[in-house]
Design a protein around this nucleic acid. Sequence first.
DNA 1: TTGAAAGCGTTACCAA
DNA 2: TTGGTAACGCTTTCAA
Lengths: 348, 348
Amino acid sequence: MTVTLADVAARAQVSPATVSRVLNGNYPVAASTRERVLRAVDELDYVLNGPASSLAAATSDLIGVLVNDIADPFFGIMAGAAQNAIGEGASGRAGGEKLAVVCNTGGSPERELTYLTLLQRQRAAAVILTGGSLEDPEHMAAVSAKLTKLTDAGTRVVLCGRPLVEGDASVAALTFDNRAGARRLAEHLLSLGHRRIGYVAGPADRTTTRHRLEGHREALAAAGVAEGPTVHGPYDRRSGYDATLELLRREPSLTAVVAANDTVALGACAALRDRGLRIPEDVSVAGFDDLPFSIDAVPALTTVRLPLHEAGARAGRLAVGTEQPPPGGVTTIPAELLVRDSTARPRS
Amino acid sequence: MTVTLADVAARAQVSPATVSRVLNGNYPVAASTRERVLRAVDELDYVLNGPASSLAAATSDLIGVLVNDIADPFFGIMAGAAQNAIGEGASGRAGGEKLAVVCNTGGSPERELTYLTLLQRQRAAAVILTGGSLEDPEHMAAVSAKLTKLTDAGTRVVLCGRPLVEGDASVAALTFDNRAGARRLAEHLLSLGHRRIGYVAGPADRTTTRHRLEGHREALAAAGVAEGPTVHGPYDRRSGYDATLELLRREPSLTAVVAANDTVALGACAALRDRGLRIPEDVSVAGFDDLPFSIDAVPALTTVRLPLHEAGARAGRLAVGTEQPPPGGVTTIPAELLVRDSTARPRS
DNA sequence: TTGAAAGCGTTACCAA
DNA sequence: TTGGTAACGCTTTCAA
């Protein structure tokens, strides 16, 4: 029924071993032989059996990319960048393609672990975890244990935008300086004269939420400005909408709102519009992340631009490169402030 | 080094066959034995070897979801819905988890085929193709051939929002009525009094682009209204922005713009704002797809709401259900008009 | 209800 | 440079 490597070997009049070598291209094969094999492959329309190959080689060409929310363009950009990097890394000898797949955890710790197990089961070549993690000791320990097992089994692990787990020396990490980003964001608003700033934070138990909030408070404290109201919620649009209304209810005289990320910022803007407030004439809005579309969607948005494309690309490269082992160190990308709201100003 | 099924068997004092039966749960095993095995699995922290399992069983638990643009929330929603459906379908006996993975083709025909091959190589349990397809005969034939091979090999194939390929009876399809949706969209604008309507279309060679454009023209023709200017471009935000500026350049007196999808609509709105035009006071904007965020982002947006959540869910179910074979028929979901712009009106 | 053993399709080592 | 041939770890008849 299904064409196997042996069939190809028979047709090309060579041994299965030779066919394998041609297909993997990691072994010297005479040009004429290679051509004969390739022709047979083509004529028979042969497709390698992945599971068999993985079993024998004790590794697969699967690369898992875990994201918290696949409907959030933030993760879409990260995942896309990682896939591109992986794809270009593989371009070269045929058959060397990796299968970059994104797994949507939905922010659920259980699903995160489930996916990690599933990828472990598949003997994935690499796993890239993106986005902040739940700050629950138990869950972090569980994840850490899983990652250790993965690295022990030869799977490369890359943390992208998520803090390095203690004691995982064999894991490569790429982190964003959320604290500094938040600080500069607040400093920017302060320099514009804002004194009452509301803050729409992410979920209370996420690392990104805490770090950004800390940076925000540092800046306020340094300037001797009292902290404005803060509301927590999921990293989604609706949460931004609701939280902003709540902020305005608590303190109608706010002149600026900081959003936990751009998706949240979109919701915040919608809420302000629905309240009849103009941006940035009435209220300034500032958000994290580099979401191209939202910068345009809300022209006056102040955003801390994190070079995510590069981040994703590097994460992918770390994961794929088989020549070099993952550095096992932490690379921190400094947040870069992008000012788009020259007109933003506090209400006088 | 790594724990195998044999280790578990030894520890539980049973044969490997029994362990396998316990793990797969598809065979009668004495309660006491099962418990003993499960304990051994736990104590040894055993994780099934996916490739070995797939090789022996000639099938894997991988489900591929192909999307055109992972950074577009439209596909994020689809993929998420499919994953949810797959996840809930699997909940039950342990170990029965499917690995739902999304593959980003970036709209590239080559990458689409590459991913299809990669999934074929993995002996994927199912493949879900989402979004419109390239209308190139050669490419369609290639995809069709690949799909046939996949189904022959036992992989379930589901087309979601993409037209059924000729002669693929074993493929399940779920299509959106793009033509009717576009027609009703235009009818809606016409009923509001608009007579000069610009159209920002998708890429010229996509099925969705053509079908939507055809519906649009049908409505105009039926009403005896002359067609306005049309500009083609990719299904992204920037394209919507640029195309809208071009439309206005060609015909400054437009009173409404139809966008190929919501992402494009966001770009269109941005362009109108940058031109100093107000929505919908100066220009009405209408877009396809059901992107929750954009409905809020552009309060006056008229959108044809396609029940994608349900679509994705059903697609997932079709793909996973092992009890029932895929219907092999076409299910068309009627477009449902959602009017959100009671204030939209043509300039007088 | 359980065990024994024959594959499943590749890879990689050892010879030639 | 090529061939022969054990693994690789699991599933699945066939018997018991």
